[in-house]
Design a protein around this nucleic acid. Structure first.
Lengths: 146, 146
DNA sequence: ATAAATAAGGATAAAATTGTCCTTAATTAT
DNA sequence: ATAATTAAGGACAATTTTATCCTTATTTAT
């Protein structure tokens, strides 16, 4: 559904939301290990997420790293998709038609529109915080290696 | 959600199902124009769909081209995904984790699993024929250019 | 001030996907 | 038989995505 970049972005954001605070920042190496993603590529993706402090914040130097503010935790998960420029995936036609709408529907439109609505609702209604909370309750996983 | 290849595969299959018969075959050029896809790339994709006559059938020579049998029309749309080797998209974890299940869920698993189920149901329950019928009723579109 | 630690950014490489072109094979009509 | 028409298949090219590496900038601690 999403690109690798977006998958890493979502996993990293959830992990940072769960483990970090402005006092306790996380380094790139720890994050990449935890979410099982390639280190340098993850760095690029974190750059997109920290751009304008939209979703993730960062600090240079010793004890620096990545963290998330309380305010940003309250953003819908969809904000991550927007930050990595893949929000359109939620809205696009499942057959890839440029123009597919009620007025000009593709053959799957009437069926798929309900799923699309739920997808959008999922990413819009749940906040980054929501997902981080569940992971800290214990039973959830964010990386491939145990 | 799907790759371009899969989008073209779905559009081509629906178009062929609507316009062709074993007596009335469709040429590559017509198909590519109708579904607004690159001609030569579409040829490759049609090759996958005709492999072992799984979904689409073809014939060489004058008055040759692509068509679909009555039997194949009754296949679930999911058969197209399988033919182009992209069926896994329906099942995969939305965060891209290799192992994501009830027993070892990712942070979005509990929410997303319902959507996943509906997606699978959509592609499993609807046949190629179903989609072709609706397009021939008139109000549906399968290409970008009008 | 200096050194150490860390993210930011640029250049590049590797791999995958998308796309084209040309030759070959199969079929049909003459 | 021959020519025309069409799909099949192989080789390659272009583009996009994924990934790495190296240098630079920023901050902190000494």
């Amino acid at each position: 559904m999403f690109s690798k970049a977006t998958e890493y972005a979502l996993r990293a954001t959830i992990y940072i939301a769960q483990k970090s605070s402005p006092e306790q920042k996380l380094g790139l190496v720890e994050i990449a290990k935890a979410i099982d993603s390639p280190r340098s590529f993850t760095a690029k993706i974190l750059q997109m997420l920290t751009k304008d402090n939209k979703v993730i914040s960062s600090a240079h130097g010793p004890n620096g790293g990545f963290y998330i503010t309380e305010k940003a935790k309250k953003l819908p998960v969809r904000a991550v998709l927007k930050a990595v420029d893949e929000d359109h995936v939620l809205m696009k036609c499942i057959l890839g038609l440029q123009e597919c709408s009620e007025r000009k529907p593709c053959p799957m439109h009437d069926q798929y529109k309900h799923i699309k609505r739920e997808l959008i609702y999922l990413f819009e209604s749940r906040t980054i915080q929501d997902l981080a909370k569940e992971i800290s309750k214990g039973k959830l996983f964010i990386g491939n290696k145990q």
